[in-house]
Structures are given as C-alpha cells and as structure tokens.
C-alpha cells in the first residue's frame, strides 16, 4: 500500500487526500448540525417562556389531542397527557435530561473503557490476558442482567443509571481501543521514539493516545446512542428516570397506560428518540470510517 502511494507524485497525493477529507468533513458537518440544533433547542426553548410549564397539571384538560386533530388547539400543540400536562413542553424539557444522560452515559463508559483498552493493548502480557478475559465475560452478560443486578441492590436513581451505563459500555470500547493500541504499538514511529530514548509513559500519552482520539470520539458518539436507548428502556420499565423527573423514556412509560386512547403521548417522545439516535449512529459511523487508523494508513 505504502509502496504504491510512494510512487504517486506528492502534489497529486496531497490533492487527493485533501479532497477526500473535505468530503468526509462535509458529511460529518451535516450530521452534527441537526444534533447540535436539537441540543440548543431543548436547552434554550424553556428559557424563552414560549412553552407551557411541563409540570403544570390540568385535570379538566386531560388527553387533549394535538392541534392537527379534531378538538386540538394551539394551547397544547402536541396535546396533553393523562394529567393534562403539555406534551410539547414535556418533550423539550425531557430532551434536556435524555441528552444529558446520553452524553454523561457515553463519557462514563468511554473513559474507563479507553484506559483499560489502551493499557491492555499497549502493555500486552498478563495485563492483556486478564483484560481480554474480563471483556469476554462482560460481553457475555446481556446488559439487562447487569442492569437488574445493580438496580436490585441499589434501587433506581440517576447515579445508578450512570453506573449501569458504565458497567455495560466499557467493554465494547475497551475491545476496540485495545486492538487499535496494539496496531499502533507495532508502528515504526513508536520503535523510533523508543530508540531515541523516549519513556513508555511518554510514548503512550503523547503519541499513542493522540492517534486514538479520532477512534475514541467516534466510539463515544455511538455510545451516546446506546446510552439514550438504555435510558429509555429502563425508564420505560420504571427502573431509570421516574416522575417527577421528565425524560423521553419516562414519557413513554406514562404514554403506555393511555396508548389506545391517546396515541400522541407515547408517539412523540418515541419519534424524538428514534431521530436523535439515528443521527447519532450515522455521525458515529461517519467518524469511525474517517478515523480508523487501520483503514487509513496515511
């Protein structure tokens, strides 16, 4: 591969690489843009005062239909739930918590996962042996079993949710960073630095980790999607976010009871989850093909 590349005149090669980069950068940009817009929206919109109070119950106006159905009004554009709370306001405010859980949930999985993966992939030896076994054992346990085990002893709360996300998410990340660190370790520039007298911690921190950043960002992005789906499932079962806190998952739980009478209560938060997770997955895929050092040698 390199041999072939070396024969391409520099200018052409640089031109070609630059064009490919620009193309990938645009697709990443157009996927990230709506996500950022959604995040800004759910943060800013409640401050403007345009929305109803999401926790204001109105027992005279329960299960009001959305504006585009018969009997709907602009007072509650997406209708109301069984307590007469405004679905649109709940959707926006719930989005804050859901996106926050997605972000933090990804961070708590990626952090330890990366650390363990790099350590195992770079040090090899018995560290690697132990870690590989742990990863296997972890991946053999379906996430729901871990969630059940933790929640049954800890009860459900936001910190417990993050604990579950960390415990279920680290292994997948560790597996990828381990294999990338392993290939980086064999690269000649690492040998060259060692020959120049660089210490191992220096090589790892200044050369291996920076070359992993792209991969870590991509994995973290995909993990946001997973975290949002886990949050919605656990909250739906009453094991994650519980009222009075509002998240998209908790909204689905309250919509379940009235599904046959008021479809809109469960439909809108479900759509919101699907759209956000889809965008996040597309973005993560785009970043992953962009940054995988094994797919792109130069």
């Amino acid at each position: 591969m390199t041999q072939l590349d070396a024969k391409v005149p520099t200018i052409v090669a640089t031109e070609h690489v630059a064009r490919a980069r620009r193309r990938r950068r645009t697709s990443v940009f157009w996927l990230a843009l709506p996500l950022v817009a959604i995040a800004v929206l759910v943060v800013v919109l409640p401050m403007t005062g345009l929305l109803a109070d999401p926790r204001q119950t109105d027992l005279d106006n329960t299960l009001a239909p959305p504006v585009f159905l018969d009997g709907g009004s602009w007072d509650n554009p997406l209708g109301t739930d069984k307590l007469g709370q405004d679905v649109l306001a709940q959707l926006v405010v719930g989005g804050r918590l859901t996106l926050f859980i997605g972000l933090v949930g990804a961070l708590v999985a990626i952090g330890p996962g990366t650390l363990i993966g790099v350590l195992a992939g770079y040090c090899r030896g018995w560290v690697d042996l132990v870690v590989s076994r742990l990863i296997d054992a972890q991946l053999a346990l379906p996430f729901i079993l871990i969630a059940l085990a933790v929640i049954s002893s800890q009860g459900s709360s936001l910190p417990v949710l993050f604990l579950v996300l960390a415990l279920t998410g680290w292994a997948a990340c560790a597996r990828v960073t381990r294999s990338v660190a392993m290939t980086l370790r064999e690269r000649q520039f690492v040998l060259g630095l060692r020959a120049a007298g660089a210490s191992e911690p220096r090589i790892v921190l200044r050369h291996v980790v920076p070359n992993l950043v792209g991969t870590i960002v991509a994995l973290g992005t995909l993990q946001i999607g997973t975290a949002i789906l886990v949050e919605s499932a656990l909250s739906f079962l009453g094991l994650g976010v519980v009222p009075p806190d509002i998240s998209w998952g908790a909204m689905l739980a309250s919509g379940q009871d009235v599904l046959s009478r008021a479809w809109w209560v469960a439909t809108f938060p479900g759509l919101a989850i699907t759209v956000v997770v889809l965008l996040v997955n597309l973005l993560g895929d785009a970043l992953l093909t962009h940054h995988d050092p094994r797919k792109r040698r130069r």
Partner: peptide, 10 residues
C-alpha cells in the same frame, strides 16, 4: 435506532 418496545407500542 428505534427503541424496540416503542415499536411494539406502535
């Protein structure tokens, strides 16, 4: 990207 149980509800 779809939450499965939500699909079930739909």
């Amino acid at each position: 990207s779809v939450p499965v149980f939500w699909l079930g509800m739909m």
